[in-house]
Structures are given as C-alpha cells and as structure tokens.
Design a protein around this nucleic acid. Sequence first.
DNA 1: CTGTTAGCGCTTTCAA
DNA 2: TTGAAAGCGCTAACAG
Lengths: 339, 339
Amino acid sequence: MNQTLDEVARRAGVSTATASRALRDLPSVRGETKERVQRVARDMGYVISPSASTLASGRTRTIGLLTPWVNRWFFSNVIEGAEKGLRQVNFDALLYTFHEAPGQPRNRVDPQVLRKRVDGLLILGMQLDEDEVLSLESLELPMVFVGPGHLRHPTVGIDDFAVAQMIMAHLEECGHTRVAHIAGPDLEQFDNSPSAGRHAGWKAWQEERGRPCDDTWYHYSSFDRTGGFESAMLLLDTHPDITAIFAATDDLAIGAIQAAQARGLHVGTDIVIAGVDDEDLAAYLGLTTVHQNPREQGQQAAEMLLAAMGGQPAPLVTFGEISLVERASSGRNTVRLVN
Amino acid sequence: MNQTLDEVARRAGVSTATASRALRDLPSVRGETKERVQRVARDMGYVISPSASTLASGRTRTIGLLTPWVNRWFFSNVIEGAEKGLRQVNFDALLYTFHEAPGQPRNRVDPQVLRKRVDGLLILGMQLDEDEVLSLESLELPMVFVGPGHLRHPTVGIDDFAVAQMIMAHLEECGHTRVAHIAGPDLEQFDNSPSAGRHAGWKAWQEERGRPCDDTWYHYSSFDRTGGFESAMLLLDTHPDITAIFAATDDLAIGAIQAAQARGLHVGTDIVIAGVDDEDLAAYLGLTTVHQNPREQGQQAAEMLLAAMGGQPAPLVTFGEISLVERASSGRNTVRLVN
DNA sequence: CTGTTAGCGCTTTCAA
DNA sequence: TTGAAAGCGCTAACAG
C-alpha cells in the first residue's frame, strides 16, 4: 500500500534509479527490465508524485495559461485547444484570469505567483505593456502569445491585415465603396493588436482606391456589442451615405446590426455589415464574416510552447487559417434570421 | 541570489523552521520575529517552492476543475467564478476537460491522473455514472459538484423544479395552458439532472391543472440549438394547437425560435417561447427566461470546497438565486430583436 | 545497462 | 517561542 517508486523498484527487483528510468521510458534501460517495471507499476496502480519529481528535476510539467477571460468565445476555445494539446503529453494547465468585468482595467500580471510553478507561459489575448513583458521575461521561461503578439516571442494568430482585405474584397465585389470601419478600442494603444491590423487593412484598401477613409470614417468605443452599437450610430450620423460597415469583430458587427435596425435600415439590402470571427452567433444571425478557428490556434500554441520548452526554436509568427463566410448581412444568402 | 527558505532564515537570523512558521503566519512565532522574517522575504523577492512545500506537507494548494467544456456560457462563467474564489486564498486551479465535440460521448474520468496532484475536486455539469463517482471517491478528496449533483456530496445549483414552476406561472399569467416542453437529452439517464428537474416542474404544473403533459407534449434530442429546433418542429407537427413552449435552456429555446420562424409563426404573438439561463444572447434576442448566475455559483462552490478541505462540513445542497426575466418572446416587452 | 548516493526546498516532530 | 534534524519521493550525477 506504499505507493512509492521505492516500492515499485523493490517489487520489480531493481534499484529506485532503474525504476525511475524505466517509468520515464529512458533508452538506457534494457527492454525486458523496462517492461517488468512498467507492469509492476501498472499493477500496483502506482502514480508518480509530481511534487517530488518537480523538486528533484526542476521541471513542473505544468504551464501557466494567462487569459483576460474564459467566458468569451475566442478565449474559451483557445483554452480548450491548448488544454487538449497539453494533456496529450501529460502536461497540466494552470489557469490565471485577469479580468473580472468587461470595461474594467485588468489586474497587472505579477510574475511572482508564476515563479517555481510552471515551465512555460501561454499568454492569450493580453495587451501587456513593456514593463509587464520585461517582468515576465525575468522568469526566463519560454512563452508563446496568442492573439496580440510580441516581437520577441512566438505568436499564434491570424493575419489581420489579410482578414481586412478579404472582407474589403468581398464588399467591393458587392459594389460597395463607401465602407466605414468599427475598430476595437485598443487600436491606438498597441500597434501589434488585431484591431490595429484590421484597421490598417481597411485603410490601405480604401486609400489605394481613393475612397473615404479619413478619421471620420472609422470609430471605436468598447470591445463588445454596445461598442459596436455606439460606433455604428455615430458613423451613420456623420455619413448617412455609408453603404457598408466592416466591424473588427462579430460582436462589434452585431452591435452595428442593432444600430442599423434601430435606424430602420434593413441589413443586407439598405446596408451591408460584416464582422470577423465566425462565432456561433454569426451563423445564427446571418452575419457575413471571416472564419477563424481559435481551438486550433490554442492547440498550435500549446505545441509551440512544448517545443520551446524542449529547447527547439519556434517560429516567431504562425498564422491560423482564415476564410470568408458570405451570409445574409452582405446580401449573399437569403436563408437568414437577421431582421 | 539563492532564493530559498534557508537563505531567508539566514538573513533574518533565525532557523529555517522559524522562517517557515513566520511565513505561514503561524501563531507560535513572536510578532517581531515574524515581521522581520516577512520583511526579509519580501525584500529578497522570495517565493516559496510549491513542490517542496507539497512534498513535505502533503498538501498541494491546488484543486482539480473537471468540466465537459470551457467554451459554453454556463461552464466558462462557473470556471471564472471558481478561479477567482480560489485565487483569493492562493489556491491554483488545474483544468481538466472531458469533451472535445458536442454530441460525442465524453472521455471517462480517470482518477489516477488526479492522484497526488490536488487537494479537492470541483466537478462541473458532469453526469457521472456510479463507477466514476466511486473511483473518484477512492481518492478520498473532498469534492463539490456544480449543476447535476450527487447525493453524497455537496452540490451547488439552482432549484430546477422551482425554475420550471416560475416559467409556468408566467406563461399561465399570459394565458397559456397548452404548453409544450423541450427537455435536455439527459432527461432519462439521470434523475439528478437539471433536465429532469425542469421537466418534473413542467409536468407537475400541467398535471395539477389537468392540462396536456403526456409524452407527446415534450421532446428532446441534442443539447444545443439544433436539438431545440428539431424538438420544436416535431412538437409543432404533433400539436399544431400549442400556444407556448418552455425550453429547458436558452440554447434550446433559440432553436425553437428558429423553428417557429421557419413555420411562419411570429414569436411573442403567434407563439410564446421561454428558456432558462439568461445567457448573453437571451437579452439580444428578446427571450423570456429565468436568470441564473453561474459565476456566483462557481465562486460559491469554490468556497464550499475550500471549507471542506479545511475540514468544515459543507451543506449538501446550495441553491443559487433565480429570477424571471420577461421579454418579447412571451409578448411582454416590445423592445426586441426577435424577428 | 544498473546501482549508490546525494540532494531538491520545504514541513514537522521533538527537544530545549 | 525557537532550533536541530529527519524526512517527503523523486532525479541526476557518478561509478561500475
């Protein structure tokens, strides 16, 4: 009933060291011995003590998952993907959230609580300031970013400029030239943010064609439906001749749809609206959008982090796949529920 | 630069044992000594080694968070609440997910991977069979359930029978007697499921008043919008004289709304639909529902688990608050977006 | 390929 | 109220 390595070793008739090696499947153990030890351990129902192993080896087989929220489509899916990727190789994920309420500033990231606890960091969708990044770097742990990235560290995300251009090309095809943009509020704070990339894609498209894209043609307030609503209202006030709106996310687009409806505009005919994400709601509402797969991005990020912890270099930037989904909000598919 | 307790002790001029006691704020240390040690530790930026502490004490200060999904409204909010409650007392949450895709059977819960890793278990929304519960109990760890509970263990949830009665009373008030029900697919597998409680509440209400509630008056397939859509279609086929539908969750209700619209029925006038949850979407779609707060339930459950790990007895059943939210789908509020 | 041995950094008796 | 010392269960040289 003494579930220790020593006991496994004793029963298998080997030393503790050999038992340890056998269970870790090190190549330096004779096949037969290895199997015997593993069988004995299995029969005993032996499980390793992670704390003892960590203490002796210095490796925790645990990563820290830093995220602003878990209750949002993008993040919860990234988390699921990452957890799956880690679990496959028996790594644990320690969850650290940094936001309590939308609209509130988040807690600062404190590297101390991470110290001696994890072998690596997966940082989701957080706009860290330079001090925070430096403090995290002081931990000397591999880290991988998802979403807003960092120049010095591997980042998984999507090509936000391409996303914007994909949407704009679609709108062009639909005959729209007076296209306003709703951005995320982090647009001007961080130039590595998705908001910045999407705004840049929109602006470049319009500029190259001599179309309206001055500062009155885009707007942002908060990063949710309310923000989308407000921005759309304002843009429609300023430019009643807008024929299309490209919103940086589906949530913002949904707010914009509400605004259009409040104005008595029929979405898909009177005005065209497109978002980015293809979250569950998008199909339901008939929202034209750019599809991305945060679950895969999470798994990908986990694999990159695993590789980095294994000493292998990871590419600095990895793009997830994106694809255009044409729906009723751009007038393309009449099977829809948008009013 | 040697960030150990020994070093703290040396600098504070005390023994390792005293330093350990001081940092854990044990009462057996003289106030002055305690402060000195704590100050030294702070100045050094000392952080304890969790693995060493765990190895020596047998306590991990970590709990296992078992959940089918993280990407669903209810679960992600429970997780956020729980994580917050745990973080406040410096406990870590280890995430274990058990579903990859909706509709697929989940992985079985394996107690071995939890062994020696956690001090307690928070089990979210999982329908465990008796074997699984027994195997978890073999870990001899306190556990708290959220959602579908267990007779032998503390459970946080809502009073599902009351939820149903609350909705039914509202529908009654609106003049509905021919009320069909859409249940969750776990209705008949487990009698402790929310689906079972809500179904029972519906059935009791109808039965007591001599109203239709035989087996053709409720239906279920899958636990998502598609399931709600299918069930509603079927119910409307069987009983074209239905005037209201009570769906066990908002997601099911949303599917039912689609079905009604597909039939050319105007929701709120031709037919009334109500759900349960009050997830984000409900307000957006104007869905009448029963509000619950999974975030608070998660935090509550974390506190109960903490108490249980501290040896304090926890109540076997704790109900979260619920309240009726009347919206357009039951004809009560014309500010709405439902078609 | 295998065994011996010395820790990893704490907590916890036990004694003072 | 404090200290000395014995582990907790494993890994990692090092030796053989």
